[in-house]
Design a protein around this nucleic acid. Structure first.
Lengths: 196, 196, 196, 196
DNA sequence: CTATAACCGAGACGGTACGTCGGGTCTTTTA
DNA sequence: TAAAAGACCCGACGTACCGTCTCGGTTATAG
């Protein structure tokens, strides 16, 4: 087993590969993504891909993450003091993201990869999902301090009360995801969480 | 376009194909499932598969459904009058199913197929998911009549309040699925839904 | 190891493959011959080649043999009674063949294959070379009966006395192959073989 | 086009490369020889090989020649006055060389290279073959002076009368190469060449 | 009670993509 | 500034499956 020397890695090729992978998925969907197509589009030898990534899934995840890492960091929820308003704003934004055809394609591709490999799942969860959940938890903690949320409420479950229904509806396509739906979910959650 | 005559279809081959598909997924995972392997294992010509199914995903779904169709029908929730107890019982059972390694593998395979093709998604949703959701809705309706649930509560959202968090946690593997978790979810849901 | 069923073999593909292989060698030389190019030129899947031949060398030999098998059979030497004249005619013809650029390319390609694999060497020797040697031996036997060749002469060596020098000069390119050269070789051979 | 400065060439690397090339052919045959393997075995960068040799064939030829150049020079045939005895001795030695498995492998490898490239062929012929032919011609010239060989005999052809049959039999593997065979060839040649 | 059409097992076919090997070039670091 | 190291682009390798297409052979209605 040869372990290549990262110091000699071509930054230009790396970028071209990630770009190509991302664009190809956007154009034709993840199911039709092939290593050969990535290499061809990137103007790169296949070996250069195999040298640095174990699978096309890994390439795509890197591609996705490097596209989104720019906006990372600013995941804090608004905190106006009005918990309901803040959550409605947040969940409406989430709904909008799920409804964006481009993001929808990408997220479903990511999900397929996650399903097949727990390691990839952990990677994605840690880097993409967890920050958002933590930000939401933080907002709820703030509300807890303000006495708007029961002191003994399990906030890890609370965030799932908010995102779970939306995720369920998006994944299983049981019904359209609308702003009204987001509002309804927030309404239920507030009643479930509010101090007695 | 040839439309084969279902009357002449070999029941023996059909069964062998579904059996082979199911077993192969159980043994090596859905990602490694191939039409050729199914045909070989079933002692069947490839054409016989292509004649009756449009894709390997369709074969697998049929295989899965025919395995589970035996227990179908009895999807009604218990109705003891104690809504909380009935829901806890139900959600604990759901959690147990998700924790079963065999079912976990199969359900994730099914999910991969759903993600790639909305038609398959619809099929699965209609045949597997919807009956359970409807049964749950029916139990909530009964509770509504008994005044335990607010009259104006949207029951379609209500069921997602119950199943969404569990689904979210199972899919994204953010934390273990336990009976306590099921109980907590039910607790939140009851508070959210109860009549004012 | 799967042994394919020759009864189902596509005669059309077989011919297209042999034709393509032959033409490609004629155009670009044996060193540049690839299985992929043969498949592409023949309009055939690579697997169809790998199914029926173990290597590109084997394909090429088949191609060469099928091109030349038409004229096979008529390998008898002339027998006018004048041994010298008959041999001169024959060796001049051999020299002409070696001097033909197309045949030269093909024969050198064949030789490269022979050198690498004794099995291929045996195949080529038996099917192409041996008939000519035998025909020559037969002519010498006739001359022996006519008292023009020593009774105790070893005819197997005698034919090598005729073809060996020409082959040596062709292979090693030490000097041009001419009709005069052929005549000189025949002259020496006649003196070596003639009855005492 | 870079022309490297031979003065700065590393003699140690040169020797390691030739040694590696020679040994690799001895171990696995010429067909499996690769530049990468030579470089790895020699502990040398690939570029060092490409800098000084145009192809793997050139490397191998150099390797072969440097192995055999030690014994070069002493290519004169014995001249005891008995032409037959001297030639028999010489051709028996040639036969022994051809029968040596190590030399056989090397010589066939050399021949493959020669076939593909006339320039290499010329190089090999000039450096390895021609000296032997000339030595043999010289011995025949001596015999000519002694009246044992016809004055008008073409000695260039005469040597091919000796080596041609042996080369033919070795290359085409039509029959085993033995001392008796060498003697028979010499016998025929003497009759062909002797003064009238 | 055939005969004739369909499904069936088998598997060859033209293809696409795989993951690997090696070719020859180029760049970085060391001596 | 040659050499070692090795990443790079590229082309071909031989394999796995794809989905289509014949092949007999074996039912199972329809004349």
């Amino acid at each position: 087993m040869k372990t290549p020397n990262p110091a000699r890695r071509s930054e230009q090729s790396r970028r071209a590969i990630l770009s190509a992978a991302f664009d190809l998925v956007a154009e034709s969907g993840y199911a039709k993504l092939t290593i050969e197509a990535i290499a061809a589009r990137a103007g790169v030898g296949k070996q250069t891909i195999y040298r640095w990534w174990p699978s096309k899934g890994a390439v795509f995840i890197d591609a996705f993450l490097s596209k989104t890492s720019d906006e990372e960091g600013s995941v804090a929820l608004p905190d106006t003091g009005d918990l309901g308003a803040d959550l409605r704003l947040t969940l409406r934004a989430v709904v909008d993201e799920y409804n964006d055809p481009g993001l929808d394609t990408m997220t479903r591709a990511l999900t397929i990869e996650s399903l097949g490999d727990p390691a990839i799942n952990a990677e994605i969860t840690t880097r993409l999902l967890e920050p958002h959940l933590e930000a939401t938890r933080e907002r709820l903690r703030s509300a807890q301090r303000a006495g708007q949320v029961a002191e003994d409420a399990d906030l890890s479950v609370a965030v799932e009360l908010l995102y779970g229904p939306i995720y369920h509806r998006w994944m299983l396509r049981t019904a359209p995801l609308t702003h009204e739906y987001a509002d309804t979910v927030v309404g239920f959650a507030l009643r479930a969480l509010k101090a007695a």
